[in-house]
Simulated assay, not measured.
Amino acid sequence: MKWLFLALALAAPSQAGLRFGCSTLSIQRLDPLVQPGVIPSAHLHQIIGGNMFNATMDPTGAFRDEANCTTCFFSQDFSNYWTAVLYFKARNGTYKRVPLYTNADLEGEKGGMTIYYTQQDFETNGNQSITAFKQGFRMTLGNPMANHSTTPGLRYTCLQTVMTRGREEYTLPAQPCPAGIMTVHHFPACWDGVNLDSPDHQSHMYDTGKGGFEVAGPCPASHPVRVPQLAYETLWNTTAFNDKSLWPEDGSQPFVWSTGDDIGYSTHGDYVFGWKGDALQQAMDSSCMFDACGDGKPLLSQSAADLNKCSIKNTVTEETEGWLTALPGH
């Protein structure tokens, strides 16, 4: 992935895009998109965003009007974003959840993810009209049952430092990563313009991305509406497990997703749109960049202390953090 530091991005003219942190709202086995109403769902997720997240999530999107707090920097964003959870598997067969940490360019959030809504790239808003997602919109990326690589937008980066970015891989890194592992989820940015969802939560979208934050190709006639390029970055602090004497005796990498996948193809992301009013469209129509879009220019924002206060009570009560003899749900 091509990476531009925040300072460089802010120096360039004619920009329009959001990049912001969200703290962890909950870590539990719920999945209102793939397994609505199922308590508990098949595997563990890390969830960020608005506090109306639950096992069903009204498909009309009415939950956004009921939410009263969010773990995201922009206080009008009551969307929910979630991914699988990464574990370390010890030689004795027990599992330990890998802790999350916050992107170095962001301050104060607890765990969570870095979220992007970009229009073209990090340097310009381009010359296309960008249509914000509509109330009731939802989508997924990837397949928790995947056993081979089929989704271009899913990548891993073995971090050398907290600030550097390097070669992206399709599978979990085979070697210890000095500053942890970053998972990247780039969602499709072409919408059919009609369906807010689809049975597989993906067919209403089409991907013309070229990898990373490069300029995507034009949208096809079947999916003609360009929407914001949504992306998640999640930083897993694997440094406590970098001692190779802890790794399997055959030298294979020891990390496993909460899906049970130890290769990496099953990483996936889920999204339920929940921005208040037309706030996201206002942002897409502006020339602001990253957190400079806050403080009413045009979006409302909140302090890290305020967003960290937002929480929900877990519906599913089970041990997810200590040394476990099996992954939750397995």
Rank of each mutant, 00 (worst) to 15 (best):
Q202D: 03
T157C: 10
P13I: 01
Y116H: 14
H45R: 07
W191N: 04
S203W: 00
G21T: 10
T320K: 15
D306V: 12
F20L: 02
V256C: 05
A104Y: 10
A62K: 13
K110F: 00
L280H: 05
G251V: 03
P218L: 00
D285K: 14
W236F: 09
G322H: 05
F213M: 08
F5C: 11
E107G: 08
F63E: 06
H201V: 01
T259E: 10
P328S: 02
C158F: 01
M139V: 01
L324F: 05
V227G: 07
F290E: 09
G180V: 10
D285I: 01
I130N: 03
R138W: 05
K276S: 10
T238Q: 02
N125P: 08
T140W: 06
A292D: 14
I48W: 01
R226T: 00
K297F: 03
A11E: 10
E319S: 13
A221H: 06
I181P: 08
Q281A: 07
D295Y: 11
E214W: 04
S129G: 09
G274A: 05
G322S: 15
N92K: 01
V38L: 14
F241W: 08
A67K: 04
G322A: 11
T208N: 07
T234F: 07
G180I: 11
P99Y: 03
T83N: 15
D262P: 01
V184W: 14
G111F: 05
P152F: 03
T325G: 14
D285S: 12
E168A: 12
V85S: 09
L327Q: 12
G50C: 04
A9Y: 12
Y101M: 00
K89T: 00
C158V: 00
S311V: 10
I48R: 01
